[in-house]
Nucleic acid binder design. Structure first.
Lengths: 340, 340
DNA sequence: CAAAAAGACCAAAGCGCTTTGGAAGACTCT
DNA sequence: AGAGTCTTCCAAAGCGCTTTGGTCTTTTTG
């Protein structure tokens, strides 16, 4: 059943039927009812390919997925996706993932824009002055950045969490508890979130005349194994930290294992605070010693970004508004006063 | 730059240019060279929307993503996606995720097929006699099932791992080591993979005249917390198992925690074997006691399924061939002879 | 009461590609 | 030399929708 048949059936022109269905004003209300009714009864669904060709709108949002033999997709992605999907579903939006060589995403961005394959895109895990952000900005496709990319001379729309504030608070708490040697096990420090976290921590320390020593900060991809290694390296130093802030729950698993291997205890010998993106399958309260966290649901962020993308597509949202969400500091058993 | 302009520029008809570009035989080789060359030089890219409308081909593969406030996307999904993306990238295939209400995916399947939104779909986490499989089978869109759906009177194409064989081998090893009371912490037993694993285990036990007691099998969603709870329930029984097979690494984290909480040790009091889908961020060899596993890379499966989908789209693959991959049994420190 | 405005509808021209059904010219065959 | 065959190319008809630029009534306005 296509438009031609439907309009023939109603003895109306395609124009009128199309307009009736798309809510244009220049059609009699009663006619509209007839049309809408008939369309529903016959299960008429406009062919999206045709509509696409005519309007350029696709009803899809895009994401360029970096891939490659040595490229691992972040497990956070799936939670983000849950949120995104949750919103997208209720608005009949689909998500198209365009796999790209991790080292050449530009080609793919250009392709999906030139081909009008999606109405909007989002960008995640941005770095300072991220080329992708600059690119989509000039390409002129609606977009939202999940996270921030500092260092541009233009503004752009983003949704981010207050990573700096979160780790500032975490460090402040630890310092208040008497800790003087803090360490940071961070994610990839080429990414903004990691930079912000480190900055927040340094700021809190500086406020008390303390610093984060060179040997007290690690930057690694966030796996259990790397958490373990980093923790061992930190704890086996001559002047080991008495408190660690850790950028992910998964790395914290490794930290806890290292602590145990070294015959130490949490929080007796070491206080630990980690960032929690809120996974359904791994909860900080279930660590053998309940883990204190800075908490922010990445899933909610996914839903919010879908919402903003939809708003931008329909023209409801404009401008370069950035939003920064506060992060909860949740104190559990893994922090205590400094030993000694 | 569109076809019209390009053909005008070459003083050829759109027909000829289109055919030259798409490799049809009825065009002079020299003309073809001229066309291909000009197309490249002017960066001509056929408009996919237009091509879609004309051919019905989209260059996209589809996945219906179950969503909902209480629906969590499996973290395995992201690894699968890595593999899929890896292959798809090299073949200019995109993946479209269509979020659907978890309780009504049928509508979405019908929509994407009726609208010709994708050239093929894949289905994951199938259950016996899965309605989605029956549906796409009748809808006539090319598809591959990741996993198996038993109980149909028709054949269909799938790629699965030998879950039954894997857990059969695991159980056999444990029994050989003298264990008599085995337990299984399984995933959702409405899904085929879980059923097959349980079956494999029972078969191995039956071969030695043993059984898997009612109270020795748990079926839960695969989170750390559920692994913990299940393990406690098992181990606090009057006749606790001396060995556990566990369907996921994440649940195993919980099992290990439970064992520790109860003051028991692995493998002294309990042998543990888990299934490992091969995550980059959590490795069985890094468990405090290295974990024995049945191992199969879900990422490879993703790549394989993308490959098969592409083959089906281009007509290279036909029929209802199912393939079952063997699973490695990797023995590490977490298994030992039965205590006592 | 004529002129202007508003309301309701339509025919046809795109959107940019693929594909059908020739046609013109060169070549082969009897 | 005339009939058949290739080879190479083209004009035009879709694909199914949106949108432009009307027309024909009916209502409002000065």
């Amino acid at each position: 059943m296509n438009l031609k048949q439907l309009s023939h059936m109603l003895a109306l022109s395609q124009t009128t039927v199309s307009r009736a269905l798309n809510g244009y004003p220049e059609v009699n209300e009663e006619t509209r009812r007839r049309v809408v009714d008939a369309a529903k009864r016959h299960g008429y669904r406009p062919n999206p390919s045709a509509r696409r060709l005519a309007t350029g709108k696709t009803g899809m949002i895009g994401y360029v997925l970096p891939t490659g033999a040595s490229v691992d997709i972040d497990p956070h992605f799936v939670e983000f996706l849950s949120g995104l999907g949750d919103y997208a579903r209720s608005h009949e939006l689909d998500l198209v993932l365009s796999p790209a060589d991790a080292d050449d995403q530009e080609t793919t961005y250009r392709r999906i824009v030139a081909n009008r394959q999606v109405d909007a895109v989002y960008i995640s895990s941005p770095r300072p002055a991220d080329r992708r952000v600059a690119l989509v900005n000039t390409l002129g496709i609606p977009f939202i950045v999940h996270g921030r990319s500092d260092g541009f001379d233009f503004d752009y729309p983003f949704t981010d969490i207050d990573n700096e504030g979160a780790f500032h608070e975490a460090a402040r708490l630890l310092v208040q508890l008497g800790h003087r040697r803090l360490a940071l096990i961070n994610g990839d420090d080429r990414e903004t979130f990691a930079i912000h976290r480190e900055r927040g921590m340094r700021r809190a320390l500086a406020a008390r005349g303390l610093t984060l020593g060179e040997r007290h900060v690690c930057s690694v991809t966030m796996t259990e194994e790397n958490g373990y290694r980093a923790a061992r390296r930190l704890l086996e130093q001559s002047e080991p930290p008495t408190a660690i802030a850790c950028s992910s729950l998964i790395m914290s698993l490794g930290v806890v294992r290292a602590v145990r291997d070294l015959g130490l205890t949490i929080p007796g010998d070491l206080s630990l605070i980690a960032h929690d993106d809120v996974f359904p399958w791994l909860k900080p309260e279930n660590f053998s010693v309940p883990l204190s966290t800075t908490r922010s649901s990445i899933r909610l962020a996914g839903a919010r970004i879908a919402e903003r993308l939809a708003a931008r597509i329909s023209g409801l949202e404009e401008g370069a508004r950035g939003e920064v969400w506060p992060v909860d500091l949740v104190v559990r058993g893994s922090v205590a006063g400094a030993p000694g």
